[in-house]
């Protein structure tokens, strides 16, 4: 995973709350078996409308999505994060993220940064009045800057550390493999196993 320190790119105002993962990527696109190539699937339903924000210049080249509260609700599909990344997004700003979506983002190097809704609305205004305005997101100082407006954002320390270092979770966990083995030795005998298979 590539380390994330700071990012500057065109901001895209998505003025909607409760953007669920079925909207971010409809289920029909979940049938693929690869990890990349989902850019065409991002917001596929909404993109049929030529007026949809991502179909309009200069937003179509955006990399910082500025969304309403409760972004990424619903299905656990990590494809939602892949689709955002494949389209070119590096950062999503929202007042509140669904838990699973936020977790998935952190693992894929997409920054889900929490910004107060009143600040989101100020950023929306700026991006609409001056389309193509660049938004700078500084993970070091936890600040987001849009035109002359600047504010802080929240991301937990652990996610921030991993993003900055570009660390792989599995590698980190395997450093404690001995502890896992020890824990397994202490598991009670009544815990079920799937193998050998028993059926009714």
């Amino acid at each position: 995973m590539e380390p994330f320190i700071t990012h500057t790119g065109i901001g895209v105002p998505l003025k909607q709350s409760n953007v669920d993962t079925d909207q971010i990527i409809p289920a029909v696109y979940l049938k693929r078996i690869t990890r990349t190539g989902f850019e065409d699937a991002l917001f596929a339903g909404w993109r049929k409308d030529p007026e949809f924000i991502l179909n309009r210049e200069p937003y179509s080249a955006g990399s910082v999505l500025v969304a309403g509260p409760d972004f990424g609700t619903g299905s656990s599909r990590e494809h939602a994060v892949w689709a955002l990344k494949d389209f070119g997004f590096k950062v999503v700003l929202s007042a509140r993220f669904a838990d699973i979506f936020r977790g998935n983002s952190g693992k894929q190097g997409l920054l889900a940064a929490e910004v107060d809704q009143q600040d989101i609305e100020l950023i929306w205004k700026e991006l609409e009045n001056h389309p193509g305005t660049q938004v700078t997101v500084d993970l070091e100082g936890r600040t987001v800057t849009c035109g002359s407006f600047s504010t802080g954002f929240q991301v937990d320390d652990y996610t921030r550390w991993r993003l900055r270092e570009g660390l792989d979770d599995i590698g980190l966990t395997l450093r404690t493999e001995q502890e896992i083995t020890d824990f397994e030795a202490s598991r009670p005998a009544y815990k079920p196993a799937t193998l050998p298979a028993r059926t009714a």
């Binding site: 656990s76 990590e78 977790g103 998935n104 979770d169 599995i170 395997l174 397994e184």
Partner: peptide
């Protein structure tokens, strides 16, 4: 609880998950 695909891979490899 539900997990994303990266976590599925993590559980397959380690039978554990780092969780807050």
């Amino acid at each position: 609880f539900g997990i994303g695909t990266s976590e599925v891979e993590h559980v397959l490899a380690t039978q554990s998950l780092p969780l807050k």
